[in-house]
């Protein structure tokens, strides 16, 4: 059978975790520290410049725009994703069980298509000359919208597409949460004379509060770090007014070849992500504890 060393549980256990550990260490932890190192070099990566890259960024108006835009983008998009997801989940949960699968399946399609590819479709919908949305608006006697060329509408567009891609995730999470609420609670509430709104505010919301929190925090991370939509739709334009951390880092680091500066831009996401991750972890733990 097994050699003596492997018969002991911890030895086998550690052995089985070695590939995972190697992956996390070599391709996540190491790159992270390497990024910290890179961010302290000059553009040619020949000299140590300390925090010069960061102070350079702090002095650039574009960088502060990127910070503001990223936060605005993440917050607005997540709020709408959460609202649409909750409304859709509630609607699906209201209709007879038989038809629920079908509706859910249709609504998940945006989330199933690789975002870079579906964003191509949106790009075509926003195309200045041929925009099929504008064609519809014109028929309704609404003036055509400059979707991607005007700052406000460009920001609106990337948020719209992000909401379109991400709302189904909220839908799934909320629907699962709604289904986990025992029906008896609603029956008891009905006995106590609660109406639909009261049932929603006094039973549904408190029961799924934790899932709402975890899903929202999680989505803020993903949205804050978004790349595909802006990259395909606007490439950061017009005049850098739609750049996010990721697209700006790509522009600076890969396209302009200033790898240290690009690394510095990316790293700006880290404190925010770390705080969010900490809160999520605490929530997940608390939830696990409350279930135990």
């Amino acid at each position: 059978m097994l050699p003596p060393l492997l018969r002991r549980k911890p030895a086998v256990a550690v052995l089985m975790c070695v590939p995972l550990f190697g992956l996390i260490l070599g391709l996540v932890a190491y790159p992270f520290f390497h990024a910290l190192f890179l961010a302290t070099l000059n553009k040619a990566e020949t000299a140590f410049v300390g925090l010069d890259n960061f102070s350079f960024l702090f002095g650039r108006q574009t960088f502060w725009m990127v910070v503001r835009q990223s936060l605005l983008f993440a917050l607005v998009a997540v709020v709408f994703k959460a609202l649409i997801g909750l409304a859709a989940a509630h609607a699906i949960n209201t209709i007879p069980t038989k038809g629920q699968r079908k509706w859910r399946g249709m609504m998940l399609i945006p989330w199933v298509i690789p975002p870079a590819l579906s964003t191509l479709g949106w790009w075509w919908l926003f195309e200045p000359t041929y925009s099929a949305i504008n064609w519809g608006l014109t028929k309704l006697a609404v003036p055509a919208v400059p979707w991607l060329s005007d700052t406000f509408w460009a920001r609106f567009s990337i948020i719209l597409v992000n909401v379109w891609v991400g709302a189904p995730f909220f839908l799934i999470m909320y629907l699962a949460a709604l289904k986990s609420i025992p029906g008896e609670l609603y029956e008891a509430a009905e006995m106590d004379g609660a109406g639909p709104w009261q049932k929603f505010f006094y039973i549904t919301l408190p029961m799924i509060r934790n899932i709402i929190a975890i899903t929202t925090l999680f989505s803020i991370i993903v949205t804050l770090a978004n790349f595909d939509i802006v990259r395909v739709l606007t490439q950061g334009g017009p005049l850098n007014t739609t750049h996010l951390f990721a697209t700006y880092a790509f522009r600076v680091g890969i396209e302009s070849g200033d790898i240290p500066l690009g690394a510095a831009v990316s790293l700006f996401m880290f404190p925010m992500l770390a705080i969010l991750a900490f809160i999520i972890l605490r929530n997940v733990r608390r939830r696990a504890a409350s279930l135990a």
Partner: peptide, 19 residues
């Protein structure tokens, strides 16, 4: 493992580019 799951691709693509 859970924390690594929360690390987005856009955080580390530049150092990984070097690697």
């Amino acid at each position: 493992v859970f924390l690594t799951y929360l690390v987005p691709d856009t955080l580390l693509f530049i150092p990984l580019f070097k690697i």
